[in-house]
C-alpha cells in the first residue's frame, strides 16, 4: 500500500503548522519524518490518521483518496494512552473490536505480539501496574493488533531501555520486510538511518529536505577522505608536503588522517600517493556527513 500526501496545509487559529506538505511512502519502505519539537510531525500524522482534517490538501492511498473505514492504519501516538485501570487484554480487545476485528482474530494477533515483545506475563495485569517500557509494549500491540497495512509510529523508541529498544527494532524491521508502509518519527538519528530509505525534514511547516538518505548524503561534497592507519599524524604531514597544491587541509583525527582536497577529481592521486607512503593502511573512505549533521544544518534556524 503506497501512501502519499499532497499539499497539506493546517493551521490552528493564527498559527500555520503545516504549509504545503507533500510526501510519499511506498510499501515495504519506512519513511522517516524528522523535525524539531513543534515542527508539525504529530499534526501531519494525526491528519493521516484522520483525527482531524487538513485545511487543504489530500491524503491518498494507492493513488485514491484514502478510505479509513476499509483500511487499517496502525497508530502509536506520541502521547501514549490506554486505560490505566483496565486489564491489558480487555482493552486490547476493545480497540481491536472498534477496528472491526473479531475476538478470535484479535486474540490470535495479540498473542503473537505478546510473544515477540516478551510481554506475555502482562496479559491480565492492569495497565497502571506496568513499568513505562512495558506500557509502551502494550501500546505497540494496540497499534499492530489489526495487522495494519500502514503503520504510523510517533517516537516509538523514546524512553526504552536498550533491550526493549532492540525488541522494538526487530518488530519494525519485520514490518518493513512484510511489505508494510511505515511512517516513523524519531529524534534518534541512528534509528532513522537504520530503518529508513527515505526521510523528510520538516521545518516551519514545510519539507526543507526530502528524499533518499543515500542520495542526500552523496549530494554533499565528497572531497574529504579519511585514511585509517597506524601513524596518521606522520601520514598527513607527508601528504601535505608531497601534494601541497591539491590539498586544502590535512590533519589527524583519532586513528585516521583527514585530508580535504581542493577538488574531488584528485581523489585517485591522493589515494595512490597515500598507498605508496604507508603500507599498513586499514581503510580509506570518503567522509560523508552524518544524518545528525544534516538535520542540524537544516533545522538549526527554526523558520
Amino acid at each position: 500500500m503506497d501512501l502519499s500526501v499532497y499539499e497539506i496545509t493546517k493551521s490552528f487559529g493564527e498559527k500555520q503548522v503545516l504549509n504545503g506538505i507533500s510526501l510519499e511512502a511506498r510499501a515495504g519502505e519506512a519513511l522517516g519524518l524528522l523535525g524539531r519539537n513543534g515542527a508539525g510531525k504529530t499534526t501531519l500524522m494525526r491528519i493521516i490518521m484522520g483525527i482531524f482534517p487538513p485545511d487543504s490538501g489530500r491524503v491518498l492511498a494507492n493513488g485514491q483518496p484514502i478510505n479509513r473505514r476499509s483500511l487499517n492504519i496502525g497508530y502509536l501516538p506520541e502521547e501514549r494512552g490506554l486505560y490505566p485501570k483496565k486489564k491489558v487484554t480487555e482493552q486490547l480487545l476493545y480497540f481491536a473490536a472498534l477496528h472491526g476485528l473479531s475476538k478470535k482474530t484479535a486474540l490470535k494477533n495479540a498473542d503473537a505480539l505478546f510473544e515477540k515483545l516478551d510481554a506475555a506475563a502482562y496479559k491480565n495485569a492492569r495497565l497502571e501496574t506496568l513499568s513505562k517500557g512495558n506500557q509502551q509494549k502494550i501500546q505497540l500491540i494496540a497499534a499492530l493488533i489489526t495487522d495494519p497495512d500502514i503503520v504510523i509510529l510517533d517516537e516509538p523508541f523514546s524512553g526504552l531501555d536498550p533491550v526493549n529498544a532492540s525488541l522494538f527494532k526487530n518488530i519494525v524491521k519485520e514490518l518493513i520486510q512484510n511489505g508494510k508502509t511505515v511512517f516513523f518519527s524519531s529524534h534518534q538519528m541512528n534509528y532513522v538511518e537504520e530503518f529508513c530509505d527515505n526521510i523528510a525534514i520538516l521545518n516551519g511547516g514545510k519539507i526543507v529536505l526530502g528524499g533518499n538518505i543515500k542520495k542526500i548524503k552523496r549530494s554533499y561534497p565528497r572531497n574529504t577522505l579519511l585514511i585509517r592507519c597506524e601513524n596518521p599524524e606522520n601520514l598527513s604531514l607527508r601528504l601535505k608536503d608531497a601534494l601541497g597544491g591539491i590539498i586544502e587541509s590535512a590533519d589527524a583525527q583519532n586513528d585516521a588522517a583527514c585530508i580535504t582536497l581542493v577538488s574531488e577529481k584528485d581523489k585517485k592521486r591522493l589515494i595512490e600517493t597515500a598507498l605508496s607512503f604507508e603500507s599498513e593502511i586499514d581503510e580509506i573512505k570518503v567522509m560523508e556527513p552524518s544524518l545528525n549533521e544534516i538535520f542540524i544544518s537544516y533545522t538549526e534556524e527554526q523558520i
Partner: peptide, 16 residues
C-alpha cells in the same frame, strides 16, 4: 475526562 487525560482518546477516535 479519564479517556482524555489518559490520552486513550487518539486511538479511540481513529477507531470509533
Amino acid at each position: 475526562v479519564t479517556e482524555k487525560s489518559s490520552k486513550a482518546m487518539e486511538l479511540l477516535i481513529t477507531g470509533a
